[in-house]
Design a protein around this nucleic acid. Structure first.
Length: 588
DNA sequence: ACTAGGAGCGCG
DNA sequence: AAAGCGCGCTCCTAGT
C-alpha cells in the first residue's frame, strides 16, 4: 500500500512520506531516474550527538521523506557519495548523517556558501541573509514558505517549545513531513537560481575553494578533540569554589548578583566610588576596564566572581558535558564563512581563555600523540604591507627581526625605549583597524596629543598606508558599496563607514591565505592531523617526532605574498593544549 | 514562557 | 572630520 502524498503551499510541489514497503520501492524507482537531488535532514537538535530523525530528498517538484533507521541502504549510498546532491549548509547534514563526512561533501553543492559569496551580509547587517527562509523570500518570492516558520507554529499548537519540538514531534506529523520535504525542494530551486549567479559573477573558483575548505573543517568537527575528564571536573570544582568565595565576600557589600551591572554600580556608588562612564543606553558602565581602574574590594571581588563564573559556565561545563555524551571528545563546529570577511568562526571552542590555562588544559591529544600549534605571525600586518605596497613596511618584515622593533626604530630612531616599541605596536594595529587618536590614547594610556603624534609619525614613515586606505575608501564609495578582494571576494561596505574597508580587505585576504594553507595541508596529507583552527592558528596532533612534524608543516604554511614573507611558527605542547600557555603565567 | 537587545567578556 | 575590526556565549532586563 502506498501512503498518499501530501500537498504543500508551494505551487505544484508534493511530498511523499516513505512509510511502507511499497513506498520504499517507489522511492527506489524514483531515485533511478534522478541525477541531482536536494537533501535535508531533520535532527533531534543541534548538538553533535543528536540523531537524524528524517531525511528528505527532492527535485524541484517533489520530495521523498524517510526515516533513516528504516532505510539504511539509501543512507549508505548517500554517505558514500553515490548521488549528486545540493544542501543548504552541507556540513550540518553531512555530519548528522556520517561519522566521515568527506565523501558526501565531495558530491554535495552548498547553497549557503553560494549565498554568502553573493552577499556576505546577514539580515541584521542589511543583507539578504544566509538562512533558507530569507534566501527563499528574496530569490523565490513570497510563496516559498520555509519549514522552520511553519513548524514553529505547529510546535505551538502542540504545546511544544522549539527545542522539545524538534526532538519530540511525531515523526509522521503532516506539518513536520511537509515542511521537511519542502526545505529540500526549496534548496534545489535556490540552487537553480544561485548557481548561474555564481558563474556570472566570476565566483566559481572561490566557491569551489570554499567547498573544499568546508570539507576539511567538517573532518575536524567529526574527528573531535579528546578531553581530560578528570582535569575538567577538577577545574570545574575549583572555579565553582573561587566563584562561591568571591560571591560570599561581595554579598557583605550588598551585591547579591554580581552579573547585575545595576547592582554593582549601586554598591560602588553607595561606597562613595565615583563612576564616570555611562553606556549607550545611559546606565553606569561597570565593565572590566572601569573596575580595574578602581581600587575597591567590591570591584575586585565582582571581577573574581564573574571571571570564575564565566569560565565555569561558558567553557568548562560545555566541554565536560559534550565529552560526557561523546566518548570523551568535543567536536568543534566550524563555520567556514563565519564572518562577512570570509573569516572562520568556531562555535564554543574558539574563544577559550588563554590566561587561565586550566581551561585549554581540558583538551589533550589522543594516546601516543603530541599537540602542535602552528600560527602565522603578524599575518594581518604583513597582508596590509602587501596590499598597500608599502616598501618600508615590507623591508621591516624582510629584515626578519622583530617587526614592531623595526617600526619603532623608524619612528624613534635606533635607541627607542620598550614603551616606544609598545606604542609603535599599538599604532600599527590601530592603523589596521582604522582607529583614531582617541582610541589609540585609550588603549595605550598616552595623551590624545601624543597619540596623534605617533599616528602622524607612522603616516610619515609608511606613506603608502594612508594613500592605500584613501584610495580604497574612494573605490568603495564609487563601487556601489562593494569592494573586491584579491581573491575575488565581494565585500560590502556600509555607507558612511567606508573607513572600515581597509580592515575588511586585510582581514579577508588574511583569511584566504589561511584557508589556502588548509587546502595545501590537506593536499599534502596532513588532514588527519588537524584538530582545530583559530583564525590564524591550526592545532595539530602527531605521532611523529613533534619537532620534525612542526618543521614540515611550517614549510607548507610559510611562503610569501608578493615581496612580503609570510611566516608560520610552531609551539609544541608538553601535554594538554593548556600547557602551551603556562609560560604566559610565569611572565606575569 | 519566550524573545530581543544590551552589557560584558572571551578569542584572533 | 573622524570613525579600532571580526566573531560566540552567557546573563540580565524589559517587553510580549
Amino acid at each position: 500500500m502506498r501512503t498518499p502524498h501530501l500537498e504543500t503551499p508551494l505551487d505544484g510541489f508534493i511530498v511523499h512520506p516513505v512509510r511502507t514497503d511499497a513506498d520504499r520501492y517507489a522511492l527506489e524507482e524514483w531515485l533511478q531516474y534522478e541525477t541531482f537531488l536536494g537533501i535535508d535532514t531533520e535532527t533531534e537538535g543541534l548538538a553533535y550527538d543528536d540523531e537524524v530523525r528524517l531525511v528528505q530528498l527532492a527535485n524541484k517538484n517533489e520530495a521523498w521523506v524517510f526515516d533513516p533507521k528504516e532505510n539504511a541502504g539509501i543512507v549508505q549510498e548517500i554517505v558514500l557519495g553515490h548521488y549528486d546532491l545540493v544542501a543548504h549548509n552541507a556540513t550540518f547534514d553531512a555530519l548528522a548523517l556520517a561519522k566521515d563526512p568527506e565523501k558526501l561533501m565531495t558530491v554535495c553543492e552548498d547553497t549557503q556558501i553560494m549565498a554568502h559569496l553573493l552577499d556576505p551580509r546577514t539580515t541584521q547587517d542589511g543583507g539578504i541573509g544566509h538562512g533558507l527562509k530569507p534566501l527563499c523570500d528574496h530569490y523565490l518570492g513570497a510563496g516559498a514558505i520555509d519549514g522552520q516558520t511553519a513548524l514553529k507554529q505547529r510546535f505551538k499548537e502542540l504545546g511544544l517549545t522549539i527545542a522539545s519540538g524538534f526532538r519530540n514531534i511525531d515523526l509522521w506529523d503532516d506539518t513536520y513531513v511537509v515542511y521537511g520535504g519542502l526545505d529540500a525542494g526549496l534548496t534545489v530551486r535556490l540552487h537553480d537560481i544561485l548557481a548561474p549567479k555564481i558563474k556570472e559573477s566570476g565566483l566559481n573558483n572561490i566557491y569551489e575553494f570554499e567547498r573544499h575548505v568546508s570539507r576539511i573543517c567538517a573532518g575536524m568537527s567529526a574527528r573531535g578533540i579528546k578531553v581530560d575528564m578528570d582535569h575538567a571536573i577538577e577545574t570545574y570544582k575549583e572555579l565553582e569554589d573561587e566563584e562561591l568565595q568571591a560571591v560570599r565576600k561581595v554579598s557583605i557589600y550588598g551585591v547579591e548578583n554580581v552579573n547585575s551591572t545595576a547592582q554593582v554600580a549601586e554598591a560602588l556608588l553607595a561606597r562613595g566610588v565615583e563612576l564616570t562612564e555611562k553606556t549607550n543606553s545611559g546606565k553606569w558602565k561597570v565593565d572590566k576596564t572601569v573596575l580595574n581602574s578602581l581600587d575597591d574590594p567590591v570591584a575586585e571581588l565582582v571581577q573574581q566572581a564573574k571571571s570564575a563564573g564565566k569560565a565555569k559556565e561558558s567553557w568548562v561545563k560545555p566541554i565536560a558535558q559534550e565529552a560526557f555524551r561523546n566518548e570523551g571528545r568535543v567536536h568543534p563546529r566550524i563555520k567556514t564563512l563565519g564572518a562577512k570577511t570570509g573569516r572562520m568562526s568556531v562555535e564554543r571552542f574558539q574563544q577559550l581563555p588563554t590566561a587561565d590555562y586550566r581551561i585549554r588544559g581540558c583538551l589533550i591529544p589522543d594516546e601516543g600523540h603530541t599537540l602542535v600549534a602552528v600560527d602565522y605571525s603578524q599575518v594581518e600586518v604583513r597582508v596590509m604591507a602587501y596590499l598597500a605596497g608599502e616598501r618600508n613596511l615590507i623591508e621591516a618584515f624582510e629584515a626578519g627581526e622583530d617587526v614592531h622593533s623595526s617600526i619603532a626604530s623608524r619612528l624613534y630612531g635606533d635607541d627607542f625605549s620598550p614603551e616606544q616599541r609598545s606604542l609603535a605596536k599599538a599604532a600599527i594595529f590601530g592603523k589596521l583597524y582604522g582607529a583614531g587618536p582617541k582610541k589609540l590614547s585609550e588603549t595605550t594610556g598616552v595623551s590624545q596629543n601624543q597619540a596623534k603624534k605617533v599616528m602622524n609619525g607612522l603616516n610619515r614613515s609608511f606613506p603608502r598606508l594612508s594613500r592605500w586606505s584613501s584610495t580604497l575608501v574612494d573605490k568603495a564609495r564609487f563601487n556601489g558599496g562593494f569592494i573586491n578582494t584579491p581573491t575575488g571576494r565581494r565585500l560590502p561596505v556600509v555607507r558612511g563607514y567606508e573607513y572600515k574597508v581597509t580592515n575588511f580587505i586585510t582581514q579577508a585576504t588574511a583569511a584566504d591565505l589561511f584557508k589556502g594553507a588548509l587546502v595545501e595541508l590537506s593536499d599534502a596529507g596532513y588532514e588527519e592531523n588537524m584538530l582545530m583552527v583559530v583564525h590564524d592558528e591550526i592545532i595539530f596532533q602527531t605521532q611523529e617526532d613533534p619537532e620534525e612534524f612542526a618543521a614540515k608543516v611550517i614549510e607548507i604554511m610559510s611562503g610569501s605574498l608578493g615581496d612580503v614573507p609570510i611566516e608560520a611558527e610552531a609551539t609544541i605542547a608538553e601535554s594538554s593544549w593548556g600547557s602551551l600557555y603556562k609560560k604566559d603565567l610565569s611572565l606575569v
